[in-house]
């Protein structure tokens, strides 16, 4: 079997993604407002999706792509809910 992507490249990219993850954790702790924390949690979701893709390239298996799709959907829905909550305090609109 010929080598498509060298293992060293995949290891280096996983290391870089871990460093990016630490930056997001810093912003989540320090960020002075709720919007900072919300956006950093969304970025953590994106980084985890990238890391799952790189890892599944490493182990030559396509099992985990369903998890990637679910994380993308849940991340977006969570971001919308938190934004609506910060805006008005009322997540579900009831028409009176």
């Amino acid at each position: 079997m010929n080598i498509i992507i060298p293992e060293l490249v995949l290891d280096i990219s996983l290391f870089i993604l871990a460093a990016a993850f630490l930056g997001c954790i810093y912003r989540m702790i320090v960020g002075p407002s709720a919007a900072d924390r919300a956006i950093s949690s969304d970025i953590i979701g994106n980084i985890v999706m990238c890391a799952i893709a790189v890892y599944s390239m490493k182990i030559h298996s396509t099992e985990y792509f369903s998890a990637v799709l679910v994380i993308a959907i849940l991340g977006f829905v969570g971001l919308t809910v938190i934004a609506k909550f910060i805006y008005g305090g009322d997540v579900i609109d009831h028409d009176k």
Binding site: I5, P6, I16, A20, G23, I47, C50, V54
Partner: peptide
């Protein structure tokens, strides 16, 4: 092989740039 490696490295570097900007 080189193109795919550049894409993977570029993707992870862009994620690092996003969090450095953050």
């Amino acid at each position: 092989s080189i193109l795919l490696s550049v894409m993977v490295l570029g993707g992870s570097l862009f994620a690092l740039m996003a969090t450095i900007g953050l």
